[in-house]
Design a protein around this nucleic acid. Sequence first.
DNA 1: CAGTGGTCTAGACCACTGA
DNA 2: CAGTGGTCTAGACCACTGT
Lengths: 263, 263
Amino acid sequence: MHDPSDPPCHAAGLGAAIKLDYKRIRMNLSEGPSMKATYREVKADILSKITKGHWAPGSLIPNEVELAESYGCARATVNRAMRELADDGLIERRRKAGTRVRSSPVRQARFDIPLVRREIEDKGAEYRYSLASRSIEGAPDWLRARLQLEAGAEALHLVCMHYADGDPFQHEDRWINLGALPQAADADFTQTGPNEWLVATIPFSTAEISFSATLADRALAEYLACDTGAPLFTVERATWFEGDANTFVRLTYRPGHRMTTRY
Amino acid sequence: MHDPSDPPCHAAGLGAAIKLDYKRIRMNLSEGPSMKATYREVKADILSKITKGHWAPGSLIPNEVELAESYGCARATVNRAMRELADDGLIERRRKAGTRVRSSPVRQARFDIPLVRREIEDKGAEYRYSLASRSIEGAPDWLRARLQLEAGAEALHLVCMHYADGDPFQHEDRWINLGALPQAADADFTQTGPNEWLVATIPFSTAEISFSATLADRALAEYLACDTGAPLFTVERATWFEGDANTFVRLTYRPGHRMTTRY
DNA sequence: CAGTGGTCTAGACCACTGA
DNA sequence: CAGTGGTCTAGACCACTGT
């Protein structure tokens, strides 16, 4: 994930394809300090020792000073390689105890959370947006619970649709906390979606996101032009900015949608 | 994601809560080089400048040398702070062009992909495993396509169930490529699941993972003790080791399952 | 070609933590 | 208390890339 050669959208580069400098092709990193190694080469070499089983899961790796000597580089260089491997979940480091190969590597995947517009345009399809309904309501109990809002909090409730080449792609059911974002009441959501407005207004926030499967009820089926009872992939997201909840959204995708990544 | 103070399982620490050294409490990082700053302090300070709007999205940030002077630290220290912010998707760096605040930050979330056993035991429930069926079959066409297997490839097909406190939790439909893992044919999957065997056998591999929603058919409904037609959250994963596909699995969760994270 | 980030170094001190 | 990783430095050279 640090490696600039990783594809930008995916993660945890196990296959750290390093750009090979042909001057270095002949060197055998496992042997002597024939040439100084870069941190990427060190990282790649250690990685291969792990994946090829030379260093078994759970076993202790030489310490940084020793590795630096054997690779013929500075300790800081080894340190960076090891730190990234630790971030990638492949090794475990503890002071005094040393560094070990993880017995069962942490499996983690990183997902991009794109704006719908980009998601659609990246497919090469034409994006279209439409606002289905807009109202200001007292926040219902489930929403107040979810966002930790006070009793009596008011929210802007929007229902929108996103289309790809004219076909329904995603249904958006959004609540904006007017206590934190009163200016949302004056925003015009008929031309662009609330997501784009929010990104422009509060670009940096923390979020809680969850994925699940839901059944198409009558209304959703009509919006998404699918059968009632279809299984739909759903994303819910709540975001906060400086402690205040500002929005909750439920995004429901058309049938068959998948979210994919590599790691 | 680099910050050791982040919770271990989640990601992209926007709220980089740094452990405050009380000796430093009085210093104002935005002012002079009254005291040397650590990379975490630099990172936190830059982050706050961004989130609080002092540095607008799209705007240019001072270069490393200038920042190092204003924070009273070495350029390498600023570099590490900035590199991590770039990894977190908050800023964009280009040689010669300098560093800019991302106009719309890259939203990405990191998910842990736990073993089912851990997932269940972490809930405080008792884990139970059961093998429902086992057979060696020619790989069906869809599987050969998905894993890029040759015609005539043989696969071990396993169907398993995972229970939490006796209730069905997850249905596992797994195919193991016997071309790459012939020893799987001799493994005993009656006591422990194929996942644990695979982790022990080929701990490091690359994977493609995808999430979707599927409908419970008759068989799934019986396995999961739910109604036919229930919407089920599904994870599919294919893994490769050194270019050879070794397994494909479809994991279907009991109704109502959610996968959640923060970022 | 010049400005910016990318990386490396040799050495230093610090912080944790296992024995 | 001693060994290991965590971080910082001051300086250097390199690799891109905008102008």
